[in-house]
Write a protein that binds this DNA or RNA. Structure first.
Lengths: 210, 210
DNA sequence: ACCTTACCGTAGCGATCGCTCCAACTGGAG
DNA sequence: CTCCAGTTGGAGCGATCGCTACGGTAAGGT
């Protein structure tokens, strides 16, 4: 029964070290931004030498991109998409918005780091920024499609406007909470946001139908 | 008639140099963030040596704070607040939103740099961040008051929620334009935003009145 | 036993960082 | 003219930057 199952786990703590490095990086990058994230600081925080960081990651840009990717996966896992819906479409959308709000409270790193990178416009774009914008565009597209099934009378243009507005509002509310901290009831604000986007959609639909 | 009025103006190009330094800094800070804004880069862009920068500004933190302050004044000047209103309150609010959108297109530096600083959470907060958050809170308070005059039935809590939502939406839409560039019709999005906030306010008012 | 693979530790490279020192220069006041 | 305040120029400080070279160690495969 001596399985080689333990083979790669006991072998060396490479996997754990990688996580430690990413943990330290996400913390420092969240405090100081892209340029402010120095390898020395990451090294000090995770207890591993710089050479170990460069063994696990090609360079600083690769490290930041890896942080973005991992924090995206963490956030994705935190979003509980409601299954087998009951209730009106508005209720479902509101529940969905509340879930997104909760996930952003539990796993804020992805959006925080992403927005920090997105606002910068350096000549040579960091890979992390590219990853963030791609993921974001996919999410917006998804929202567009879902909205299209709920409001089949809306044309592509209106759907895109609504999705853009929905995402932008989420960003702004998230920023507000990042600034003002736990005092902000993000879930309530997201529910209000869902309600308003719903209103806009219904108004647009009734107008386009005539 | 040899007025001493010209005394300090002609004297030396200190004032112009200060502007040159600020111009260069706002450009670099917008590209690379707080840490990424190196004195050497600013020096190279404005053509003045580092010592001149340190003659005009105490240190790097002071320089960034000055940039925030000046870009705020520039933005304030770009916001054309409509005088002597005609039309319904909704029309007035919509025009105001459109004006804010235009001002953000013409003078985006304040909000862009401010948001970049706001998202960072370094142990010792940069002065520029403090300035930004103060100005922002004042603006939110102003919106709260104005909304209170238009909707006297709303309580303080509802007013604050509305103002917060209004500002957050503006932030999010601005970020969206920063990411996607001129293709985004910011004015149209702001007009939609004004409409939706208005809807929310009227609904809240009618509910609170009974 | 030996080689390979995976990973950590030390030392340090050249470049750049924020910032300072100090010698010019310049124009107005005396 | 001299003198001084305002402003620029250049040289360079110690610290830190991103990153690399290289040797050591420990476990797995054979």
């Amino acid at each position: 029964m001596s399985r080689p199952q333990t083979t790669r786990k006991k072998r060396a703590n490479g996997v754990e070290s990688r996580q430690r490095i990413l943990d330290a990086t996400v913390e420092i990058a969240g405090e100081r931004g892209y340029e402010g994230t120095s390898i020395a600081a990451v090294s000090a925080k995770c207890g591993l030498p710089a050479s170990s960081i460069y063994w696990h990651f090609k360079d600083k840009d690769d490290l930041i991109a890896a942080v973005i990717e991992r924090s995206f996966e963490t956030w994705l896992a935190a979003v509980v998409l409601p299954g087998e819906e009951t209730g009106t479409p508005l209720e479902r959308i509101t529940v969905m918005a509340a879930n997104v709000a909760k996930s952003l409270i539990d796993a804020p790193d992805f959006l925080r780091l992403g927005l920090m990178l997105a606002l910068e416009r350096r000549p040579t774009e960091p890979r992390g920024r590219t990853v963030f914008l791609q993921v974001r565009d996919i999410a917006t597209q998804k929202i567009t499609e879902v909205t299209g099934t709920v409001f089949p009378d809306l044309d592509e243009d209106a759907l895109r406007t609504l999705a853009t507005y929905a995402v932008a509002g989420a960003d702004g509310l998230f920023v507000h909470r990042e600034i003002h901290g736990d005092a902000v009831d993000l879930v309530a604000m997201f529910e209000l946001h869902a309600q308003l986007v719903w209103d806009a959609a219904t108004r647009m639909a009734s107008r386009s139908k005539g």
